[in-house]
Amino acid sequence: MNLRAIKSIYAFEMARTRRTILQSVIAPVLSTSLYFVVFGSAIGSRIQEVEGVSYGAFLVPGLIMLSLLTQSISNASFGIYFPKFTGTIYELMSAPVSMIEAVCGYVGAAATKSVMLGLIILLTAFFFVDLRIEHPFLMLLFLILTAITFSLFGFIIGIWADNFEKLQLIPLLVVTPLVFLGGSFYSVSMLSPTWQTITLFNPVLYLVSGFRWSFYEIADVSIWVSLAMITVFMSICLLVLAWIFKTGYRLRS
């Protein structure tokens, strides 16, 4: 195992975050704060409570999940796409580094950044609403598992993309709509039965629901189903990556 390579890639990627602190941390925190203001104040004045939780507090897990998912994908996809774009990928490809080690470095850094961001947004939320976290360890587990899973997904997108447009395509056209329609800002029980059934096909619902349960013990689906689903997503990403490593898809000609 080339641990030094993992450490080098990880440190290199984390240094990039420090360099781009505005884009990496401050921008998502600002946009999340705007969500609090708009949804919490404007809509929250009409929806007092959801299942016994104030609407502002109800929003927090969904907002964290929104940032976590989009930032995990963005960080990991950019991390591997940028060396491809600039050509510096030659070094990684000619170094004694297995693809598993490369993934550990890139995905580890992307997930770390996302978890840090999630925690910063959580801290920010304390300034806006009264929060309680019933199961802090489970909350952290969800945070970490989701960050890793979607960083793996982002890594796959970064390998697949051969231009900047493709890099943004799935996060913008698939992930963001799924997050907005996956119960981030409302409880599924507020929907009509038909839409409730349709929403059950949205994978993000399971992440948001499980994460929210760790805060308030309220959920649209069982916590165990949520945990099982995140395991399934992670396994699918790992299988796709295993195929990429085996075939050298978009990496080695």
Binding site: N2, R4, A5, K7, S8, I9, A11, F12, E91, L92, A95, P96, V97
Partner: peptide
């Protein structure tokens, strides 16, 4: 320094 690390050198 990054290159050296990639090649597993202390």
């Amino acid at each position: 320094s990054f290159s050296r690390g990639l090649f597993n050198k202390p």
